[in-house]
């Protein structure tokens, strides 16, 4: 019961259209994505150092490398998921009325999905050398 309460289970019972699934799954996936993002974020910081002031050919070569392309794909995928999951909790805590809260949560989900699609397209193009 403790876990469900921590995961916003009580909040979710107040008929929020965007979040009427259980809070435990959301809580757990937020933690799983956080854990996975620790090494991925360290990779992003490392890549950022490499790419600071890099010429186009240099940057395209780094992210075109299969291993780094995979890391970039994993980072953007998990990061955009984690972002929408965090914004959802903030919306549940602070945004009122419920229709506006649901609208903001869904808008964030669509925007994060679009962000991932754009990122994945770019990474795919770089990895395939197109």
């Amino acid at each position: 019961m403790g876990l469900v309460e921590c995961g916003g289970g009580i909040m979710n019972q107040t008929s929020h259209a965007a979040t009427h699934h259980g809070g435990l799954g959301h809580w757990l996936w937020q933690r799983v994505s956080s854990l996975v993002l620790i090494p991925l974020t360290l990779w992003v910081l490392w890549a950022g150092v490499q790419l600071a002031g890099a010429e186009h050919a240099e940057a395209a070569a780094l992210l075109g490398h299969p291993g780094h392309a995979l890391m970039a794909l994993l980072f953007t995928g998990v990061m955009f998921f984690h972002a929408q999951s965090g914004i959802q909790v903030i919306c549940e805590d602070y945004v009122y009325p419920p229709w506006f809260q649901s609208a903001l949560i869904w808008l964030t989900r669509v925007a994060c999905f679009a962000g991932f699609v754009v990122s994945a397209f770019a990474i795919g193009r770089l990895a395939l050398g197109a």
Binding site: A59, A60, Q84, S119, A122, L126
Partner: peptide, 29 residues
């Protein structure tokens, strides 16, 4: 929470656009 919101609203879209600019070629980059 504030850093999370900031990164969702600013860093994440800029990162996606940076990747897109890089993929589209030297001019957009």
């Amino acid at each position: 929470r504030l850093t999370g919101v900031f990164m969702t609203a600013v860093l994440a879209p800029v990162m996606a656009l940076w990747l897109l600019a890089l993929a589209l070629g030297p001019d957009s980059y």
